[in-house]
Amino acid sequence: MAIQRLHIETRYSEAAIHNGTVYLAGQLADDLTGDIRQQTRETLANIDRMLAEAGSDKSRILSATIYLKDIATHYDGLNAEWDAWVAAGNAPPRACVEARLYKPEVLVEICIIAAAN
């Protein structure tokens, strides 16, 4: 079965679709000057957009990995936005860890694996 890749860059693709599964690259906010809640909202909006383009949606998420710059400072703000966004009755398994991200202004990055529709 073929692998379909979306938004291919030199080092990565934004998404890969294979055998009914969608794999998203780590998604970020577009505006990195905002606080954790703003960055989380934008990141989740980008996830919605990429999942739709790949033929899926947030109700079909199989797994989420969340990377936070500072888990003690940002965990509550992340969860406030996540809880408002996640599809009711479809909260996926997830991991949330603290990590040094690629730029100091990045507060959150989220990787998603989802079933295609």
Rank of each mutant, 00 (worst) to 15 (best):
Y67R: 12
I17A: 08
E14L: 12
D48E: 15
K69H: 11
L24D: 01
R49P: 00
I71A: 07
T33K: 11
T21N: 05
A15Y: 02
S13R: 02
S59F: 13
L51F: 10
A16K: 09
L24S: 03
S63V: 03
I36M: 03
S56I: 02
T40N: 06
N19A: 13
T10R: 07
K58C: 14
R37H: 06
K58A: 14
D30Y: 10
T43P: 05
A54C: 13
N46T: 11
I36C: 00
R49S: 08
K69S: 12
G55D: 05
I36G: 00
A29S: 14
T65R: 12
A54M: 08
T21A: 08
L68W: 07
L6S: 11
A25D: 04
G55H: 06
L6P: 01
S56P: 06
A16H: 06
R37L: 07
L44N: 02
K69P: 00
R49W: 04
E14A: 12
L6Y: 14
E42Q: 15
I66C: 07
G26V: 00
G55N: 08
I47F: 11
L28N: 05
R37I: 05
Y23F: 15
S59K: 13
A15E: 01
S59T: 15
R41L: 10
D30V: 12
I47C: 09
I61G: 00
E53V: 04
D31L: 06
L62W: 09
G55P: 04
L32D: 01
S56M: 04
T10F: 01
H18M: 13
T21D: 02
V22G: 00
T33H: 09
R60Y: 12
I36R: 00
K58R: 15
I71D: 02
E42W: 11
A15G: 04
E53N: 10
D31A: 08
T40I: 06
